[in-house]
């Protein structure tokens, strides 16, 4: 191996997103300290548990690439799940129920997008507002309690298999491919990078930036609803506040994955690695036997340390 090639690789390793290190270190640690971590059964579990976060993180990646943020994905996911469950309970045909849930998510995404893009409002305030609205709607519709026992046809979206592969993994793969194609092979994708880089320049070049910027949030909302399908199937129930805090995990997956809030820089694969790292962290802490109350602060702490380390490395 020639020296320049070696240097290039060394540089690439040094500048790899924090998520890569986090995933490797966490996996090594849990593999050493627990016997159950490195089993096929548990790794499949990680993949399944992670699928909800991965799907939401993919949408969040596009939003953060456009220099935005979406704090409302957690409650929107909860609301979409509640709508799905209520529709199923009302004997609505399953495809229609799924469509209704996705329509709700897309509507909230469109609302976020319109307010942020066309009115120029700060994304975190708008989405914190719609956070409250979606949360309120979910609580009102479900009367604040779980909607359980949705039946095997809903559960299929978690337990089912197609050619031996579990359905959530297939769904995640489809979402990834779609978002990947959109981001790297369409005009929309190119514009997302450009909006994050320099929105004004893009507008001056004659591109209708506002509609593309709004489109990013719309996509994020519909992906949140897609994730709601997997989440509801997994629990065989919908709960209005099930996903509160998920937006935090998603944002962190994206940042650890090397997508930056500035200058439209980012990498879609990094977000998946980031989401897996967080899932491994939660899964491992449970295997080690840490109580869920300790997990909240431990996960928060590890995550903040990782972000700070990542930010410091890049200064």
């Amino acid at each position: 191996m020639s020296e320049t090639l070696w240097r290039g690789w060394a540089r690439r390793v040094a500048m790899a997103p924090g998520a890569v290190y986090a995933l490797i270190l966490l996996s090594l640690a849990f593999a050493l300290f627990t016997a159950q971590f490195l089993t096929l059964h548990n790794l499949t579990n990680v993949g399944m548990q992670g699928s909800v976060l991965v799907i939401v993180s993919l949408g969040m990646t596009l939003i953060i690439l456009s220099e935005g943020i979406d704090l409302s994905v957690g409650p929107v996911l909860g609301l979409a799940g509640v709508v799905l469950a209520l529709a199923v309970k009302q004997q609505v045909p399953l495809p229609l129920a799924i469509l209704a849930a996705i329509a709700v998510g897309t509507t909230f995404g469109a609302l976020n997008g319109a307010l942020i893009s066309y009115l120029g409002l700060p994304p975190f305030v708008v989405t914190l507002g719609t956070f409250g609205v979606a949360q309120g709607c979910a609580l009102i519709l479900s009367k604040g309690s779980s909607i359980p026992e949705l039946g095997p046809r809903v559960q299929y979206f978690y337990d089912g298999q197609i050619f031996g592969v579990r359905v959530p993994i297939i769904l995640t793969a489809i979402v990834f491919l779609t978002v990947y194609l959109i981001l790297y092979y369409t005009k929309f994708g190119t514009y997302i990078f450009a909006i994050g880089g320099n929105q004004q320049a893009l507008t001056l070049a004659g591109v209708r930036t506002l509609r593309y910027k709004a489109g990013v949030y719309l996509l994020g909302g519909s992906l949140a609803a897609t994730a709601a399908l997997v989440m509801t199937a997994r629990m065989n129930a919908a709960h209005p506040t099930v996903a509160v805090g998920l937006e935090f995990d998603a944002i962190v997956s994206v940042i650890l994955g090397g997508t930056s809030f500035e200058r439209g820089k980012g990498w879609l694969g990094g977000s998946i690695i980031g989401a897996l790292a967080i899932t491994v962290l939660r899964n491992g802490l449970t295997l080690v036997g840490m109580s869920s109350s300790w997990q909240v602060s431990t996960v928060g702490l590890v995550i903040i340390l990782a972000i700070v380390a990542d930010a410091l490395r890049r200064i």
């Binding site: 307010l115 009115l119 409002l121 700060p122 305030v125 708008v126 914190l128 507002g129 719609t130 956070f131 409250g132 609205v133 979606a134 949360q135 309120g136 709607c137 609580l139 009102i140 604040g144």
Partner: peptide, 18 residues
């Protein structure tokens, strides 16, 4: 009910900034 209050607070935030 307090459920409506969450909805209202969110709507107020969005409306007042808009």
């Amino acid at each position: 009910s307090s459920y409506w209050q969450s909805l209202l607070m969110g709507a107020i935030v969005v409306l007042s900034v808009a």
